[in-house]
């Protein structure tokens, strides 16, 4: 197929050729910018939730349940540290996972169905891949709020090392990307809402939180349940987080395995999401 070489003219000072080349490179950022702008109307309540819930979780579980656990475990604690220090990184990671899953469930389904913004975006010079990546970038911005709040609480109350608390941010974002793209890959294939959207929360997020060594070490579970931890992105992120925050034992090769697993999951499901978006938007 031949393409006519036709110079793109200037209309009212607008250079259409420049628009196209900008969109090819930066389309993902325009999508993220749109969603971040739209968040502004919720920002006050989100900050309240993002800052409030780490306090509640760490206070309730760390001080309440922590007293009981620490009394039982004595000086050895859990994984060699007080219970509060043990669960803090995992709670932060669990929140990142829940937020990413939720945003991708309702945001992605809604973008095709309730408020079909994906179709409007598709009418601009950007493409399906930009929508997928840009959406996820905006989710990461959203996830960053509670992550920062958790880390701040840890630093202020001297839970683990401050540098480790800082390291929880990139780990949490990597986890959110892996979970986010995975949820997006599935939700984008769903065209009718028959209540199945809540499965993500009930049958994926909650079980993973319970069985991924969040509240107790994975080894405490019977051996035949350990596989849940191994496939769970949350477990991989929590292990990395514990290594970072209080120097939990972590072989260098395992760091590679944990990071590699999350990167691979994010990459694969991102690719699947782009494929589905492309098909659905090309009507």
């Amino acid at each position: 197929m031949s393409t006519l070489e036709q110079p793109v003219a200037d209309v009212g000072g607008v250079d259409h050729a420049l628009i196209a080349s900008r969109a090819r490179g930066w389309g993902w950022w325009f999508v993220a910018e749109h969603r971040i702008r739209a968040m502004r109307s919720y920002v006050a309540s989100w900050i309240a939730i993002s800052v409030g819930s780490p306090f509640l979780f760490l206070l309730g579980l760390g001080l309440g349940l922590g007293l009981l656990v620490d009394a039982n475990q004595g000086a050895q604690g859990v994984d060699g540290v007080p219970y509060l220090v043990f669960i803090a990184p995992a709670l932060s990671m669990a929140t990142a996972m829940q937020t990413a899953a939720q945003e991708n469930t309702y945001g992605v389904f809604g973008g095709f169905k309730w408020f079909p913004m994906f179709f409007a975006m598709n009418g601009t010079p950007i493409s399906a891949a930009h929508i997928v990546v840009g959406f996820q970038v905006s989710v990461l911005v959203r996830v960053l709020l509670p992550l920062v709040a958790f880390s701040l609480v840890m630093v202020v109350f001297g839970i683990g090392s401050p540098l480790g608390a800082l390291l929880l941010l990139p780990i949490g974002l990597l986890l959110a990307a892996a979970v986010g793209f995975a949820v997006m890959a599935w939700v984008s294939t769903q065209t009718e809402d028959r209540g199945q959207l809540s499965f993500v929360e009930r049958f994926v997020v909650v079980p993973l939180t319970l069985f991924s060594g969040t509240y107790f070490p994975l080894e405490t579970l019977p051996a035949f349940l350990h596989w849940i931890g191994w496939i769970s992105p949350l477990w991989h992120a929590a292990e990395l987080g514990r290594g970072a925050l209080y120097g939990a034992e972590l072989a260098p090769v395992m760091v590679l395995v944990h990071v590699g697993y999350l990167v691979l999951l994010a990459g694969l499901t991102c690719w699947l999401s782009i494929r589905t978006f492309r098909r659905r938007l090309d009507k």
């Binding site: 393409t3 050729a17 010079p125």
Partner: peptide, 10 residues
């Protein structure tokens, strides 16, 4: 077929 962005820009 292969110039969607260039077309939609205009």
């Amino acid at each position: 077929a292969d110039h969607g962005p260039e077309i939609r820009a205009q």
